[in-house]
Simulated assay, not measured.
Amino acid sequence: MDKIMRLTSENGLVIFSKSSCCLCYAVNILLQELLVSPYVHEIDTDPEGKDIEKALIRMGCRVPVPAVFIGGKFIGSTNEVMSLHLSGSLIPLLKPYQTSMN
C-alpha cells in the first residue's frame, strides 16, 4: 500500500500499532529505552486502518501489529524485534536513529 511505503520512507523507524495492543506498547518502550524515537502509526485510529492491516499481512506480517520497519525495511513483529535485541543485532540497526543522552 502506498501509505505504508510513504510512511516508512519518510521516517527511519516506524511501528504500525494499535492503541489497545500491549505488545505494540512493549516494543515501543524497548525502542525508546534504546534511545530511538519511533514514528508510531496507530492503525485503529486511521480511516484507512483496515486496508493498512490487510497490506501488512500481504507484505509478510504474520500478525498485523506491531509491524516494525527500520530504514524502510520490514523487520518483523514482537518476536523478531526481541530476537534481534537478544542476539545483539538490533542496536546496530538502530544506530542511525539513536539520540544522545545529553
Rank of each mutant, 00 (worst) to 15 (best):
S89N: 15
L86D: 13
F69G: 03
I29R: 12
E48Q: 15
T45A: 15
E48F: 08
E53P: 06
F74I: 03
A55L: 09
V27T: 02
R6K: 12
D51G: 10
V27M: 03
I29Q: 10
S9A: 10
S77H: 08
T78G: 03
T78H: 13
K3G: 00
N79Q: 14
G60P: 08
V36E: 01
L30E: 10
E53K: 03
S77R: 09
L90M: 06
I43Y: 00
L56E: 14
I52S: 06
M59L: 15
V65G: 05
A67I: 05
Q32K: 15
T8D: 07
S89E: 14
N102R: 14
G71R: 11
P38G: 08
N28S: 12
Y39C: 13
C22H: 11
M1E: 00
I43G: 02
P66R: 09
S20G: 01
S83C: 08
E53H: 05
L93C: 05
V14E: 00
Q98C: 02
C61Q: 14
K3P: 00
V68Y: 01
V14N: 04
E80F: 04
Y97S: 04
A67T: 06
V27W: 06
I4C: 00
S37Y: 06
F74N: 01
L94W: 07
D2V: 00
Y25D: 12
P66K: 09
E10Q: 13
G88V: 05
C22G: 08
P96L: 00
E33S: 10
C24I: 02
T8H: 01
D44E: 07
S87Y: 09
H41W: 12
L23P: 03
G72W: 01
Y39K: 14
L56M: 15
V27R: 05
G71D: 13
D44L: 02
N11Y: 06
A67C: 09
L34D: 08
V63L: 13
S37M: 11
L90T: 06
K73G: 07
S9V: 00
L86E: 15
R58P: 07
T45W: 13
G60S: 07
L90I: 05
G72P: 08
M82D: 00
N28C: 12
I15C: 00
I75A: 02
